[in-house]
Nucleic acid binder design. Structure first.
Lengths: 388, 388
DNA sequence: GACAATTAATAAATGTAGCTGAAAAAACCG
DNA sequence: CGGTTTTTTCAGCTACATTTATTAATTGTC
């Protein structure tokens, strides 16, 4: 067994950078590709030949009128060489997206799930959503090269086992990899939803420029996905970013997410609003709407809730010193109504306040991150077979 | 300009792994070296020749009696090819260590510094300590290949500028790199003290096996050095791990470190103890001694202080999910008297409680980490010149 | 329509670096 | 002194990437 760096490693590295360019563009001339990847022309030729052999390359000829000289070969990533599936398994619903190898989403299926569903029924719902999404995208099950599933709670990313999960019944101990593996003939990954959301938001969202980001997933629960130096911070068992600690801060056990806070602190106000005919689904959404409409009591309760949230966000900012904090999850739809009151309070809590933005992807951040993660493993395993 | 992976990269990588082995052993036969590094024999030969050319290798012959066969060439890292300096600039003192290229400490100089010293006087004290340490180690200034300085507060590791520092007067805005650069003809690095302490403890301390560690530097101040996946987590401006957030948790602004807590919460007890002839320097040390001697009031105050500290440590554990937390700094001398009460409380605060250990290196952790950091840059820049 | 200009692809030469396997070297042993 | 053992050294091969030169395929112009 040798751990040594041998020549094939070079080819592998250069293939990775070529692929990195191909992912971001469509058709490209080989010469441009060489410039973009920082490689010599012959090297790019060789890499393209490797990639073509494993079916990743579509090739045409340049027929742009008015171009003189020998017509260039044009290459593009053969996006339909295979597909990936991203899953977001939540309390009230699950969302499944199917994408091609460039990450273009072909179909998304959202399926409501009862909050109290047990393991078997919830998994059954997830599998149905997968079937529907694949059908809508016209993708055969056998064309799926990898899948990645998000779930609340702590997930061991090595094994795919849910170590702890308070919000989904009978969920603790579940091995998502093997359980969903039977739905696909391909590797299934699993990770915490906030971790995947931050990956998604960095890939195609508001955090693309930043190497040090925290994504705060604020819904019924509160969770954080932490990225430092471009790497996801998972902790030893995958438990980093769990924010049950708000209860430590506020001495109000159990009242963690903004939804829960709305139901607790705003109990009376919510009840009064409901009596007067407001019919929005969530307590938090109800409060937000009433506050926007000028209801003073609702505004006061909201201020209190946001002050608590700001303290949680401030603690993260102080302790981890990110460049950017992204607010996502259910409340992201409220936009600046949520962001501004938190942003305003940050300078009181840390000497180096980060930027604070609302998620661009909204509730799609999690599945987008799951797709990116699945794509990473697909590319990695395809490149492993370069010289086999 | 090419960003491509070319052949010299392989040599560089293999040289790094050979050097990694050489650092940990003394004399070694080339054959053993090849096995340990996972490289073929001829490759090791070539790498050793490269390293010999830049002066990193001492060579002798194997004259072990009773060994048959052709006598082996024995190589060792030429530790006195150059030296590094590690500095720990603190409130009450500064500590300067000089080490050779293997990291063997040749001399350590501790110099008391007045708490109220301004920038100029403090730097002057540091420079004097450096001179004394170099003299004691019999190392010429010109033989120093790199130095690394630790300071409380937030340091931008790219520039070496102290961005914030509450405890050292006139310290904010100081550029440690240029300021100390004049004392050496070599690159000077700077970082936060807790960050360097965790590096030290992972190199030669109690955390050597762990990839996910938090070092809690508990003295007058409280600071944390965070390592995830073997990498130091610094945050965007180097401010990660600042724990002024205890004031957020406890609503007692300013009372952050264990020393400060002892002076505040334990004010009356400390005063009584001082009257009765106890003469230990720090308030915390006094309390600890009295508690150990059976003073009930001291024990009660200590319990309260440790409960607060446990809550801070618990927050870190919950949020970052480390494998191991190391308690270091001034209070580490108290050992289990400190560790046990904190360890006992952890399971109440997180579902995945980490191990908790007391620092093995004590107050040397910071300088040891600074030495390791300086060594890293020395090795890196020497290897850059492999084929120049 | 021939020829120059342009652009891209291909081929050859050069250099680095890794590995395997065989041969040579330098000891010890009987 | 020859045999054994262990290590070193050398030769041959493969894999990559780079630079330079050559060839190919167009377009535009005189």
């Amino acid at each position: 067994m040798t751990s040594s760096a041998t020549a094939p490693l070079l080819r592998r590295l250069n293939a990775e950078s070529v692929l990195g360019v191909l992912r971001e563009v469509d058709l490209i001339r080989l010469t441009e590709l060489a410039d973009a990847a920082g490689l010599s022309r012959p090297t790019v030729d060789a890499v393209i030949e490797d990639l073509r052999r494993i079916g990743l390359i579509d090739e045409t000829e340049d027929d742009t009128p008015g171009r003189r000289g020998r017509p260039a070969r044009l290459v593009r990533l053969k996006a339909d060489r295979g597909h990936v599936v991203g899953l977001d398994i939540g309390v009230h619903k699950c969302m499944v997206s199917v994408a091609d190898l460039r990450g273009t989403v072909l179909a998304t299926e959202v399926r409501p799930l009862g909050q109290e569903l047990g393991r078997r029924d919830r998994l059954e719902g997830v599998r149905k959503a997968v079937r529907a999404a694949l059908k809508a995208a016209r993708v055969e099950r056998s064309a799926v090269l990898a899948a990645c599933a998000a779930t609340p709670g702590i997930v061991d990313p090595r094994t795919g086992v849910v170590l702890t999960c308070d919000v989904l019944p009978e969920w603790k101990g579940l091995n998502l990899r093997t359980e969903l593996g039977r739905s696909f003939g391909a590797p299934v990954l699993a990770d915490n939803d906030a971790n995947l959301a931050v990956i998604g938001e960095r890939w195609r969202g508001v955090a693309s420029a930043s190497q040090d980001v925290i994504y705060v997933l604020a819904g019924e629960r509160l969770g954080a996905g932490i990225v430092s130096g471009g790497q996801v911070f998972r902790g030893h068992d995958g438990g980093a970013g769990e924010m049950a600690f708000l209860s430590l801060l506020e001495h109000t056990p159990g009242a963690e997410g903004i939804g829960a806070l709305a139901s607790n602190i705003g109990k009376e106000v919510v009840a009064r609003l409901r009596e007067h005919g407001h019919e929005l689904t969530g307590d938090a959404a109800l409060l937000l709407a009433a506050a926007r409409d000028g209801d003073v009591e609702a505004q006061q309760v909201l201020e209190e809730i946001l002050a608590r949230m700001a303290r949680a966000v401030g603690t993260l900012a102080l302790l981890l010193n990110p460049e950017l904090i992204v607010i996502g999850g259910g409340v992201a739809a409220a936009g600046e109504q949520i962001a501004e009151p938190i942003r305003r309070r940050l300078p009181q809590m840390t000497s180096l306040p980060p930027q604070l933005e609302v998620s661009l992807l909204g509730d799609r951040a999690v599945t987008v991150g799951a797709l990116r993660t699945a794509l990473d493993t697909v590319e990695s395993s395809l490149l492993d077979n370069l010289n086999a």
